[in-house]
Design a protein around this nucleic acid. Structure first.
Length: 498
RNA sequence: GGGCCGUUAGCUCAGUGGUAGAGCAGUUGGCUUUUAACCAAUUGGUCGAUGGUUCGAAUCCAUCACGGCCCA
């Protein structure tokens, strides 16, 4: 009994700061519409700074430039309030004596976090900061919850992810990250559109999840009474579109993979995939270099990327190295003969701690050795080429060496950012590769691919010689914004329920 | 899945076994061209949860939850 009483009391205590603001809101409700939507702003903080920031005090007073702004109160300093809008911050000067008594009294109740309008001439303070000398003002939205510490901002990582809106209000660096993300996607989109690529949207819900090796999320369609899968990649649909004659095509959208979470993995993540007919994987590498260089220059104004203390030069041509050669280069104790021999390569993999399965061929074992000993060391931008056919079920075999495919992956800072290849457009070869994947699946590999008969049918109509590529947008944004975790570049990263 | 670290007021953080603290925010008053505004007073806490050790636990131990970093 007394416990319940204490708990109720506590809930009330917890909401004390909110209750005070709620009372202020009630008082306003009694006088007028507390949530007016009549005000139309004409100016933004940063544009006023750009337009007027260089002018001196006297010039501004002569100019008598009137501005009308709106934003959230972020600080109160004597007769000044700092307003923040989507572009930045600017001060307003409040001389309560010039307002009617009722308004002056109300202004006293305005809190940090409230959203107000302000109109008046732009002046400059003794220390050289612009401010709007408030002639008219109105509370537009009362904020009921107190904001975090105005100086330290919001530090708690968990709250920054769970309540991103508070993070965005408080932390300029967070706003910057998502602004860069938006600009990067625009830049990439423009880059491709200028080269005649057509943007499309293909199914997120698929009956056969294809285009990658990963476990899918399963959902259920009630009316059709059938399971469906959230897509793990758009690849097979985009290639169908190339068959259909959209010879340059791309999609920027979400993929879903039912895997663990880490600083580099979120269950849903954004990929761009693009396909170009009458091109091969070397053209894709060239295109990637040009695109990344262009994006860096457009978005960051430089082709030198600083990431977690390392510097990456996107201006010079990226290193190109085969899987096989890279393993030799990064492992002085492994010889070409050993790596090319099934028995010896298996022994090397086992020594590295790889759980070698009986069904694996030499190609899979070489890739395991590559991933164990090379991948994380590929610091400067590097294309790794000639991936074994065994691990590349959708890529075209190399004309001279059918053991490998005309494929590459792209690495920066030890992380895979992109994967591209000349597409397998031989429908009979593709059908055989699907069969091999199905055998893997039956053998217990739940990441192996399904047989997609309609995709084979599409290839039988004829896919022109084509190359395609996927780039992980989130990881690219991490690189460009110096973010250590994928959660920092996702507005609403996946979190366990509290 | 494993290891390490964290969780104390709305926020940022102190507090290593003996009456739970500071700054900011809030409240009241003062000041009113400030720059983390200032001055004075003041409110505010199931110390993540549960169990244990102890005369006594925010503090020591165990388990769990959530998060961070590293590894797989």
């Amino acid at each position: 009994m007394s416990e319940n009483h204490n708990e109720a009391e506590h809930v009330q205590e917890e909401n004390r700061l909110i209750a005070e603001r709620r009372a202020k809101l009630s008082a306003i409700r009694e006088k007028r519409n507390a949530f007016p939507n009549h005000f139309r702003r004409e100016d933004y903080a940063d544009r006023l700074q750009a337009e007027l920031g260089e002018k001196d005090k006297e010039e501004l007073e002569t100019l008598d430039r009137h501005a009308s702004i709106a934003g959230r109160i972020m600080a109160k300093r004597g007769p000044f309030m700092v307003l923040q809008d989507m572009t930045g911050r600017i001060q307003v000067y409040v001389d309560k004596k010039q307002f009617p008594e009722e308004l002056a009294d109300e202004i006293k109740t305005w809190d940090i976090g409230d959203i107000i309008s302000a109109t008046g001439p732009v002046h400059k303070s003794g220390k050289g900061d612009l401010y709007v000398y408030m002639k008219e003002t109105s509370l537009l939205t009362k904020s009921l919850r107190p904001l975090p510490d105005k100086f330290h901002g919001l530090q708690d990582q968990e709250i920054r992810y769970r309540q991103r809106y508070v993070d965005l209000i408080m932390n300029e660096s967070s706003r910057r990250t998502f602004s860069i993300r938006s600009k990067m996607i625009s830049s990439i989109r423009n880059f491709l559109q200028q080269r005649d690529f057509v943007e499309v949207e293909t199914p997120m819900m698929q009956v056969i999840p294809g285009g990658a090796s990963a476990r899918p999320f399963v959902t259920h369609h009630n009316a059709l009474n059938m399971d469906m899968y959230l897509r793990i990649a758009p690849e097979l649909y985009l290639k169908r579109l190339v068959v259909g004659g959209i010879e340059r095509v791309f999609e920027i959208n979400r993929n879903f993979r039912n895997e663990g979470l880490s600083t580099r993995h979120n269950p849903e993540f954004t990929m761009i995939e693009f396909y170009q007919a009458y091109a091969d994987y070397k053209d894709m590498m060239d295109l990637t270099e040009a695109m990344l260089r262009n994006t860096a220059q457009e978005v960051l104004g430089t082709t030198t990327i600083n990431y977690q203390g390392s510097e990456y030069d996107f201006a010079k041509p990226f290193t190109r190295l085969s899987v096989f050669d890279s393993v030799l280069q990064y492992n002085a104790d492994i010889t070409a003969e050993q790596l090319a021999d099934m028995t010896q390569a298996t022994a090397i993999a086992k020594k590295l701690g790889v759980d070698v399965k009986g069904s694996w061929g030499l190609g899979k074992i070489q890739i395991e050795i590559f991933e164990e000993t090379v991948e994380h060391k590929l610091d400067q931008p590097t294309f790794i080429t000639e991936y074994p056919t065994e691990v590349s079920p959708l890529a075209r075999r190399n004309d001279d060496n059918p053991f490998v495919t005309d494929r590459f992956e792209f690495f920066v800072g030890g992380r895979e950012l992109a994967n591209g290849f000349s597409e397998l457009n031989d429908s009979e070869d593709q059908a055989e590769r699907f069969m091999a994947q199905v055998a893997e699946k039956d053998g217990g590999d739940d990441e192996a691919m399904h047989y997609d008969a309609d995709f084979i049918a599409a290839l039988e109509y004829g896919l022109p010689p084509t190359a395609g590529e996927g780039i992980g947008i989130d990881r690219l944004v991490m690189l460009f914004t110096d973010a250590p975790s994928i959660r920092d570049v996702l507005l609403f990263p996946h979190m366990r329920p509290e």
